[in-house]
């Protein structure tokens, strides 16, 4: 509870400055993670997520088998791989949205494969997911969509719509929208947004609950280059300053190397690549797609 309060304050006070910062920072190249690595590696880094021997197939077709990796708190990790190698599937397994065939998944101390539905909900409430498709609820306002991101922590009808939501939740939702630069669209209906705007609202929905782990499936796919950099900077700051563990899928090799401290690569029904970004070159990653 105490920790939560501090984190809450931190975001609220930094909200306004973040927005201005974002636009300025596009001019200055963001620091490479390894240069600021000292800030990340504070005292002890508890392990947030551990996967061992994970296998998944659909209707007898294996997607991947024997995938293993672990993530420490505050790490920013890029997952890369060709289309159809199972990146999105892997993320769904991590959140327990679909069952894996074999292996162990431990997220924030929850054994995902064997957890009760209440256990899974408690785990998911501490995570944020930005899906490959934005998946906003079309007929509702942007603010309502973001308020619904709090449903895991505060179940019940008050978070069905911004109209019923407590003031604190409405403010938190607006603050999350400010982080993605869309506070001025809070009243707009979600199906009246452009693709990139929708994607950013989906990011705000994932951030509003102040997740400990943020999972993003190609978060910048539909964003223009500047907005894409802004979003990646935002994720990177979350990881560095607030100790959020960030996992993102990207087909943008530059993003993967610049913002991921570590890069995991899927190919050939497995995960042949798990390396620190500083030790990789763009050429290494291209090899993964052959």
């Amino acid at each position: 509870m105490f920790v939560r309060c501090i984190r809450m304050q931190a975001t609220h006070s930094s909200t306004i400055s973040l927005v201005t910062e974002l636009s300025v920072e596009t001019l200055v190249a963001p620091a490479r993670p390894d240069q600021t690595g000292a800030v990340v590696s504070a005292p002890v880094l508890p392990v947030d997520l551990r996967v061992a021997g994970l296998a998944k197939s659909f209707a007898g077709t294996p997607i991947f088998k024997d995938v293993s990796f672990g993530l420490s708190r505050g790490e920013a990790v890029a997952i890369v791989g060709a289309n159809g190698t199972g990146k999105s599937t892997l993320l769904r397994c991590l959140m327990g949205l679909i069952p894996a065939d074999a292996g162990v998944i431990n997220v924030l101390g929850t054994d995902v494969q064997n957890a009760s539905s209440a256990g899974l909900r408690a785990m998911r409430a501490q995570m944020g997911l930005v899906s490959q498709k934005h998946n906003l609820v079309p007929r509702l306002s942007v603010l309502s969509n973001v308020v619904q991101g709090l449903l895991g922590q505060r179940p019940g009808f008050r978070h069905w719509s911004q109209s019923f939501a407590p003031i604190a939740s409405r403010e938190a939702a607006l603050a999350a929208l400010e982080k993605v630069g869309l506070a001025h669209l809070a009243n707009r209906r979600a199906d009246r947004l452009s693709g990139g705007q929708s994607q950013r609202v989906a990011i705000a929905r994932a951030l509003v609950g102040q997740p400990k782990i943020l999972i993003a499936d190609e978060p910048t796919a539909s964003l223009d280059p500047a907005a894409g950099e802004d979003v990646m900077d935002l994720f990177f700051d979350l990881a560095r300053q607030e100790g959020v563990t960030v996992i993102f899928i990207s087909h943008n090799i530059d993003h993967a190397l610049r913002y991921g401290e570590r890069v995991l690569g899927l190919a050939d029904e497995g995960m042949p690549l798990d390396a620190r970004a500083s030790s990789l070159s763009a050429q290494d990653l291209r090899g993964l797609y052959d």
Binding site: M95, L97, L120, R121, A122, M123, R124, A125, Q126, M127, G128, L129, S131, N135, L136, V137, P138, Q148, G149, L150, L151, G152, Q153, P155, G156, F157, H159, W160, A202, R205, A206, G209
Partner: peptide
């Protein structure tokens, strides 16, 4: 949308 809300930890009814 329902998958995304499930991923926030929301209950089925919500």
């Amino acid at each position: 949308p329902s998958e995304s809300l499930t991923a926030t930890g929301a209950r089925k009814l919500d």
